[in-house]
């Protein structure tokens, strides 16, 4: 993943981290972006839990495009607040969306629509605070019908955590997927973080479970628990304690710096992070089975 980020992510890029909402958040990529000191990123995610907060604290972020930034366990994200309220460590530009409007902006970006006319954020001051959005009347209606025009989002790159992929990036995902599908098609480049790499035949045996076909994928990285501390269905439980600890240990800028040194900057890679977690990570590993029924694709 170090090579993939070095090659594909540039300062100033728009980066999707956390398209699935609160599961499958690519924290391993978040860490590596901090280690490689990327700057002026536009972080795009509906709800990214503490991933965006970490990147802001580490000085990687110029813009945030999203619906919710904080710590789902702890409430506020301290770095996000500091940046928005007092410009520390640097001022950030916030583009507010609702979940559905950011979703439909990805949809427009994915399928070549210049914008989508939405009704679901009518009445919200988000329309006034986000200069990308514009009020209009439905030109096809006989009666006046207000709509909000939301332009397409076309991110430079999306990082996506999947349960399993083959070496070509064909990826199986199960459970709720948030905006994974739309973000992956809208993004110019895709980097897949696979919990497990399997033979191509395994993925091909169930094409209905493919959410990301390999032909659009720029890099596949095998990183177990890349989602930690977020959950991954059937693989890893959520590390609620870790989220609470982050909240307690990042209240002041110098506290965040200590936290970030300990958990990110002083570690060479995600393998070292997993080793540092040790038994705490093992306890989160899902070992039970609740298997779905097989689907028959036979032709005769």
């Amino acid at each position: 993943m170090q090579e993939a980020i070095a090659e594909f992510v540039h300062d100033g890029d728009s980066v999707v981290l956390g398209a699935a909402l609160e599961n499958a958040i690519p924290f391993a990529a978040t860490h590596e972006l901090i280690r490689q000191e990327r700057r002026n990123l536009n972080v795009i995610a509906p709800i990214s839990d503490i991933s965006t907060d970490m990147l802001i604290g580490a000085g990687c972020v110029a813009e945030v495009t999203g619906a919710w930034v904080g710590n789902v366990s702890g409430g506020m994200g301290h770095n996000f607040r500091r940046a928005a309220e007092s410009g520390q460590p640097n001022p950030i530009r916030i583009y507010d969306y609702s979940n559905f409007s950011i979703g439909m902006a990805f949809f427009a970006g994915a399928y070549g629509l210049p914008y989508v006319p939405l009704k679901s954020i009518l009445g919200s001051d988000i329309v006034k605070s986000n200069p990308r959005m514009k009020m209009a009347e439905n030109p096809l209606a006989d009666e006046p019908e207000p709509v909000v025009l939301v332009p397409a989002l076309k991110p430079d790159i999306a990082f996506l955590v999947v349960q399993r992929a083959d070496r070509n990036g064909n990826s199986h995902i199960w459970g709720s997927t948030g905006l994974t599908q739309e973000a992956s098609i809208a993004a110019e480049k895709i980097i897949v973080l696979a919990d497990e790499i399997v033979e191509p035949e395994v993925i091909a045996s169930d094409p209905s479970r493919v959410l990301i076909p390999g032909f659009g994928v720029n890099a596949v990285c095998h990183i177990p628990a890349a989602c930690h501390p977020a959950p991954l269905i059937g693989r890893w439980r959520r590390d609620n304690v870790f989220f609470h600890d982050y909240h307690k240990e990042t209240r002041a800028p110098e506290e965040f710096d200590r936290w970030c040194d300990e958990w990110v900057r002083d570690l060479p890679d995600h393998a070292a992070y997993r080793a540092k977690l040790g038994g705490q990570l093992e306890e989160l590993r899902i070992t039970g089975e609740a298997l779905s029924a097989p689907a028959n694709y036979a032709t005769e």
Partner: peptide, 21 residues
């Protein structure tokens, strides 16, 4: 004030969509 908020809260999630529709 939005430009210089006293407190920046986490944001909306999907609440505006639910409230509207």
């Amino acid at each position: 004030d939005i430009a210089a908020p006293k407190v920046k809260l986490p944001g909306s999630g999907g609440a505006p969509d639910i409230a509207a529709m």
